[in-house]
Design a protein around this nucleic acid. Structure first.
Lengths: 151, 151
DNA sequence: CTTTATGCAAATGTTTTGCATCGAA
DNA sequence: TTCGATGCAAAACATTTGCATAAAG
């Protein structure tokens, strides 16, 4: 725990940032809610218990910092706001998102299937590919059942 | 030409929409600028020559309609606005986007590599996959050269 | 101490909505 | 005719910024 804190502090300093209670709390919150895809506003609301005085602008600024540090990444789920997930250190790959076109729910798909494709893209395009983001659109099992049953 | 127009009109009617000059112009513009990823504002500006009285709200509404009809699709390139592309009828697949993390430029990658993966995702997740969207992030050839040369 | 981060409020930018009028079918 | 579409202005959101104060290093 102490070590983890030191590591986190080092991560901040390595990028020239200061570690503050707000930034730490935001990171820990997003990390603890794996699979939630929290927006800035949602994070702000969830944090108000613990940090009554926190400001929304701080959340926006902290999320950028945490993304720059490589602790989080942002994603867009077609609902007008940017959402955040913690980067899982135990996976060097990314999971994918399955978006249901009917109910809008978002599921995770744990496997990253793009490793080999990145290499091919790199060769064919000249781009040095560093990362990717993949969304699949379709109908989730729940909604498909409803459709079969009839409205 | 006459046939194409009829087809377009039918497409509108099939979904219960009326075909208007504005909607047609917006569709033709986006279609003619393949590879541009136009935003609503950009479309609005480009259309003012031809359609001096057009309103921005009309552009927003038309783009939704055209997307619902399957003529266009939207994409988010991390710059705060939604952009649109025409669906290419000659390709039943999607091209991918390569976003340069340095200069922000977006290149297209013509091959769709996800056909087989869609099937696998469908089997493993139970989702009926209908579509997908893929972005690769990296450094484009131009920016890599600059980096090598030194700033 | 020095410098960066915070909180608040105001500003910005994008997208949506209300409503009277217009035009497609 | 009828009902959906348009244009305009206002409203609604999401996000950013300016600035005085607070706190990290």
């Amino acid at each position: 725990m102490a070590l983890e804190n030191t590591t986190l502090k080092n991560l901040f300093h390595r990028k020239g940032y200061k570690m503050t209670p707000q930034r730490e709390a935001i990171y820990l919150l997003v990390k603890s809610r794996r699979g939630s895809h929290l927006s800035s506003e949602e994070i702000f609301d969830l944090l108000r218990d613990e940090h009554p005085g926190i400001g929304l602008a701080t959340v926006y600024r902290a999320l950028r910092v945490l993304e720059d540090m490589g602790l989080l990444h942002s994603l867009y789920l077609n609902d007008g706001k940017i959402r955040y997930e913690a980067n899982d250190d135990t996976e060097d790959h990314r999971h994918h998102h399955l978006v249901c076109l009917d109910c809008g729910r978002v599921e995770e798909f744990a496997l990253d299937l793009l490793g080999p494709l990145e290499k091919m893209v790199q060769e064919k395009s000249g781009f040095t590919v560093q990362d990717h983001s993949v969304k699949f659109y379709g109908i989730c099992t729940t909604c498909r059942k409803v459709q079969k049953t009839g409205s």
